[in-house]
Amino acid sequence: MCQNPPVSDLREQNGRTGAQAIERALAVLRCFETGEVTKGVSEIARLTGLSVSTTHRLTRALTDGGLLMRAPRGDRYQLGPALLVLGMRAAEQLGYDQVLPVLQELAAATGESVNLGIRAGREVQVVLDVASSQPLRFDQARGTRVPLHTSAMGKCLIAGDDDLAATIDHLGDLARLTRNTITSPDALHAELRAVRDRGWALNDEERVPGVRAVAVPVRDSGERVLAAIAVQGPAVRLTEDRFEHVVELSALTAAKIAPLLQNR
């Protein structure tokens, strides 16, 4: 004899189903953070690991809500106008619209590309970027996500954690991206202690061969890390004799933008 499940069980099941739908929709939107501005359903399905039928249903729902829109040509999608409104409002509320000119000043002073990054789970997410004017440069577009342990910004973001061992354990396997990538938990622990002591971090070709980055944390009045600023460029140009000057300029920039971020 069939019996209906208890109401509490139905609510729990519906809650899981609803959360899963939201997670899948967010995964679809995140496909547009970097890369080509338009994407087809098959490409989105491949990037998210979802079935084509599920992806088609999600893209249609997101399009109905204005979060996506059909591209002018072909059966492809792009970000929709509703996200523009939300993005502009978020940039204003978070202070990013006022921070960008300050980062542009840092890029001009150092001659290198500059990023502002925030902690996003086990990754750093670039939220603002300023490209160097140099022909030979290294840029990271806003929306880019990179593993915390391979990034100077990432090291700054986690170096102040109370329990570094627990933080490192949460990162899981420390993937090797170059021969310089720190893959030992003990070595990363020592590196983060050094970052905490000196107040800045270095990415010495640990994610991309030939590229270095120097980063400093942006802290609020209570010393909580809000974000990190990175100055990055070719290792042949961002040499050790420049580190001190770049750190000094970056720290001044961090002090300027901290009030713009923490008062939001």
Score class of each variant (00 low, 15 high):
A131W: 03
V52K: 09
I22K: 03
R76M: 04
D9G: 00
L94W: 12
R57C: 07
Q262I: 08
R193Q: 15
D173Q: 14
S250P: 01
E223V: 01
L67D: 02
V214W: 05
R57F: 09
V85S: 10
I182S: 10
L47V: 09
P259S: 09
N203A: 03
L177E: 15
D186E: 13
L252V: 13
Q134N: 15
A109D: 11
R224Y: 06
V246L: 05
T34K: 12
G154W: 01
L202M: 12
Q3K: 03
P259W: 13
R142F: 04
R193W: 07
A190L: 11
Q262W: 13
G18Q: 00
Q232S: 11
V114I: 03
H149Q: 05
N203Q: 12
P259C: 08
F32V: 01
V7R: 13
R73W: 00
G172S: 13
E191H: 13
L62N: 01
R176L: 10
N180P: 04
G49E: 04
S8R: 10
Q140Y: 07
P6W: 12
V28Y: 00
A175K: 14
C2L: 14
D220C: 03
D241G: 12
V231A: 04
L164N: 09
L249W: 10
N263T: 10
T150C: 06
S184G: 06
R57Q: 12
R142M: 02
P209Y: 14
H189N: 13
E23D: 06
V85F: 00
P209T: 10
D162K: 13
M88S: 12
D75Q: 08
G210N: 07
V7G: 07
T38M: 14
V126H: 14
T150Y: 08
L26D: 03
H56L: 05
R24M: 08
T110N: 03
L249R: 01
A175R: 11
A109G: 04
S42V: 15
R73F: 05
T167P: 10
Q140A: 08
G154R: 02
V247N: 07
Q78V: 00
L67C: 03
I44T: 08
T253Q: 08
L68E: 01
P185I: 10
A45K: 09
I118P: 02
V102S: 06
A90F: 11
C31A: 09
L171G: 12
A152E: 06
R142G: 03
A71M: 00
A215S: 06
L128R: 13
S133A: 14
H189W: 13
V41H: 13
G35N: 14
M69S: 05
A201M: 09
D204S: 15
E12W: 08
L128H: 05
V214H: 09
Q262H: 02
Q98W: 01
I158F: 04
V246M: 06
A227N: 02
A175P: 08
R212H: 12
T38D: 11
T144K: 00
S151L: 01
L94V: 06
R224N: 07
R264F: 03
D241L: 08
Q104C: 13
A109L: 05
V218L: 10
N14V: 05
M88W: 08
V99P: 06
A25L: 07
E244V: 06
E33N: 11
E43T: 15
A258F: 00
R16Q: 07
S151H: 05
Q104W: 03
L83W: 08
L67P: 01
P72C: 00
